[in-house]
Design a protein around this nucleic acid. Structure first.
Lengths: 251, 251
DNA sequence: CGCTACGTTGATCGCACTCAAGTATAGTGG
DNA sequence: CCACTATACTTGAGTGCGATCAACGTAGCG
C-alpha cells in the first residue's frame, strides 16, 4: 500500500557503552533538580555518583530487589514497568535524560516496586540512597525540586488511572501517542516522530490492552491518516485529528 | 437469607461543624510530616492554618479551580476524585485525619487536577500554598517527610494502574476492599469493618467498573462468606478468603 | 539466506457494560 | 409510630468491546 513506509526514519540512539568521563558534570548540571546549584556544588555531588552502561533490553534492576540506589538517566531511554503474575507487564513511564528513578527514600529495607529496563542503549548515573538523602538534607532547594517532580508524576499517574477507568482503548492509545509525542517528539519528514523504539507491545503495555488490539487501532489510525508507522516506530501525522479522537469519542 | 443484616453496624462519624478551637495543635502534632517538630514550632505553624468545616457530600474544591491552598484532614474522611466527560467519576483515594491534599507546589497559576469532596462531615485545616512553601524552605525534615508520603502515593497510584491494566473486576474489588480495610478497618462483631460510608458506587469508581457489576461481585462475595455488607457499608469476614481471590484468580 | 522478533488480520468467545425493572433501607414528616 | 419518599442496592436480559487463539506477512540481523 504505502511504498516507502518500510524505511523507519528513526535514528538509532547508540551511546558508546559508558558516557564520556567528565561529560557527567554537564549532565548533572542539566538535571532539573540540580539546576539551581553552583558549579562547585555540582562537582562535589558528582563525586557521589557512579556511572553504568546498559545495552538495549538489559534490566537495570528488578522489582523486588533491595532498593539501594537512586539513578539519573544520562543518555538514552529507560522503561519503568511493573510485572504481573503472567507475562502481562505494565509500562508505567519512559524516562529521558535528566529524569530520575529508583529509590529516593533513604529508609532501610525497602524494595523496588517496579523494574527498570534499558529501552535503548543507555548511560545512567547512580548514587547510594543514603548519600542522596544526605544531599537532600543539605540542599533544601533540591528537595523542593524533587518534590515538584514527584507531584507531577503523581498527577500523571492519576491521569492514567482515569484513562484506564473511563476511556476506550482507542482513546487511550490516541492519548498515549500524543503524550509520548510531547515528551519524545521530533519533527521529521513523516511528521512528529516519537523518538524511541516503540513497539505495538510497548503501546499495549502502556494502555492496558493486548498487542493485537493495539496493532488494530494503530493500523486504523494509519488508514485514517492520523499517524505514520512502521516496525518499532510511530510518527504523528495529524495531531489535531488524534486530539479529535480523544475529544469526540462516544464514551 | 441473612436475618440481622439489615442493621448496619457502622457508626456515623459526625463532627460538630468546626473542630474544637485548640485541638488544632494536637492534630497538627499528629500529622506525620510535622511529627518531628517541637511544640513551639508547631504552635508557630499553627498560626498559618485556618480551619473549615464541610458537611458530608459538600465539595471542598473542584478540579480546575485555581490551586491556592494545601489542606490537612483534621477529622472525618475526604474523597479525592477525578471527573470525566460524562458522570463517570473516578475515585482516587480516601483521605483520613493527618493526610494532606490540595496544592503543595507553590508555583503560580496551577489548577487543582482533581476534586476534593467531604465523604463524612469533616474538618480540614488549610494553609496558603506560599506559606506552606515557606515552611518547607525553613524545615528540611518536613520536606523530606512530605516527599516520602508522595513517593508512597505514587507507588500506590502505579499499583492502581497495574490492577486496572491486568486484573479482572473481581480481583480489583477484592484488592480494593482489603486495602480499604487496612486503612480504615475497625474490628467489629461482623468482622473487620471498613469505617466509612462506602457505597457500591464508590467501590465502582475506585475499581473502574459500573455500579451494577460492583454490586454483583460484592453480593457474590457475601454469598461466599467473604464479606458482610449492607447499605453503604462493607465488612471483611474472611480476610484470607479475599486474599485467595486475588492470588488464585485465573487471570 | 534462513532465523527470529515484530506486526497484521481473522474468527471466536466471554467478561463486563448498558438498559431496565424491581426490592430494600434510612430518613422524613404526619 | 407508621406511611412516604428518596436513595441505595439487586437482579435480569441483551449486547458489544476487546481478549484470546491461530495463522500468516514482513523486517532486520547474524
Amino acid at each position: 500500500m504505502s511504498e516507502r513506509r518500510k524505511s523507519p526514519i528513526k535514528i538509532e540512539e547508540t551511546q558508546p557503552q559508558m558516557c564520556s568521563v567528565d561529560l557527567r558534570l554537564e549532565i548533572l548540571g542539566q538535571v532539573p533538580f540540580f539546576s539551581q546549584l553552583t558549579g562547585n556544588q555540582i562537582e562535589e555531588i558528582n563525586r557521589s555518583f557512579h556511572e553504568y552502561g546498559y545495552q538495549a533490553g538489559e534490566t537495570i534492576y528488578f522489582a523486588g530487589d533491595p532498593a539501594a540506589r537512586l539513578y539519573v538517566v544520562a543518555a538514552g531511554k529507560v522503561k519503568l514497568m511493573r510485572h504481573t503474575s503472567r507475562g502481562k507487564d505494565v509500562l508505567l513511564d519512559i524516562l529521558t535524560p535528566g529524569e530520575f528513578f529508583g529509590s529516593l527514600s533513604y529508609p532501610r529495607d525497602e524494595r523496588y516496586p517496579d523494574t527498570a529496563q534499558a529501552q535503548t542503549s543507555v548511560c545512567v548515573l547512580a548514587i547510594d540512597a543514603e548519600n542522596f538523602h544526605q544531599i537532600l538534607k543539605t540542599h533544601t532547594e533540591v528537595t523542593l525540586q524533587v518534590l515538584n517532580v514527584m507531584a507531577e508524576r503523581l498527577r500523571e499517574a492519576y491521569e492514567m488511572v482515569r484513562q484506564l477507568s473511563a476511556h476506550s482503548v482507542e482513546r487511550r492509545i490516541a492519548y498515549t501517542l500524543l503524550k509520548l509525542a510531547e515528551k519524545l517528539g521530533e519533527e521529521s519528514d513523516v511528521g512528529l516522530l516519537i523518538q524511541a523504539p516503540l513497539s505495538r507491545d510497548d503501546l499495549a503495555e502502556m494502555t492496558g490492552t493486548s498487542t493485537e488490539t493495539a496493532s488494530r487501532i494503530v493500523s486504523q489510525f494509519q488508514k485514517d491518516g492520523l499517524v505514520e508507522t512502521g516496525r518499532q516506530w510511530v510518527s504523528i501525522a495529524d495531531r489535531a485529528g488524534l486530539q479529535k479522537v480523544i475529544d469526540e469519542a462516544p464514551d
